[in-house]
Design a protein around this nucleic acid. Sequence first.
DNA 1: TTATATCCTACTTATTAAGTAGGATATAAG
DNA 2: CTTATATCCTACTTAATAAGTAGGATATAA
Lengths: 142, 142
Amino acid sequence: MIVSTKGRYAMRVMIDLAQHNSDGSIPLKQIADRQGISEKYLEAILRALVENNIVSGVRGRDGGYSLSRDPSELTAWEVIFAVEKDFYAVTCLSPGAETCKREKECAILPMWKEFYEVVKDFFGKYTIQDLAEGIATSPVII
Amino acid sequence: MIVSTKGRYAMRVMIDLAQHNSDGSIPLKQIADRQGISEKYLEAILRALVENNIVSGVRGRDGGYSLSRDPSELTAWEVIFAVEKDFYAVTCLSPGAETCKREKECAILPMWKEFYEVVKDFFGKYTIQDLAEGIATSPVII
DNA sequence: TTATATCCTACTTATTAAGTAGGATATAAG
DNA sequence: CTTATATCCTACTTAATAAGTAGGATATAA
């Protein structure tokens, strides 16, 4: 599977938060109940989103989570990239990877590089607002 | 990582076979040596390719592997899809998945569906011949 | 002070990726 | 018909990641 449960859940949480964007901070428990996701697992996902400045968390009574920017300013790419482990095409392109000896003569590396850009652009063009409003159906699909 | 070592190796094997396409059947050992990949691991990858009618294997003396079609008729998509476990966007779209209860009201499913098509089209437009000839650099990358 | 939250560290378990071992089967040549 | 050379096939092992859990520290409004 290209996108794991973590990425999938993260997207659902974002849509959920967007749909309750005017309600102030939403407690984790509420989201978990609505989405049918384990509280503890959701907590880990939300932490990754907080660390990447995608949502902001407020502690204590009346606390909870909310989008850190307007949903029209947040893209699916940011969300997926924040929670998926190494969302690069191949290991060769991961920042942590040691430089490959075959790199210069590698006939396929340009394809992998382009693929990363294509994926980034694809998810980058979907804003959370679009998705929350249900405008995900694209004319590209036949 | 979106594409695993298996998919990466499979692509390298295909390029290798394309570059030795006129030499008849190429023994596994030769490919493994050239590509620096473990023989036994390569064997598993080649089996998947054989099962998907992408390469054909000939047993016995003077045996080996060769492309089952002209490299211009083989795409990166076929190769990657054959060796990667479940190369779908999300579990919801895997043929083995039970039908999701939220499917009708799911705001994100159309995006996942479109993503699968985008990935398929992207790798589908690269033929093994293109890659073997080193025509992978695309004007799309800046 | 207390109830309600998020934050943080450290686990456990399941699944997949990655790699290995050894024998069965086919085939061309001597 | 024997032998060397291959692929085929089943079944492992080990490492890494995904998925989920537990429990306490910290912050905050009433």
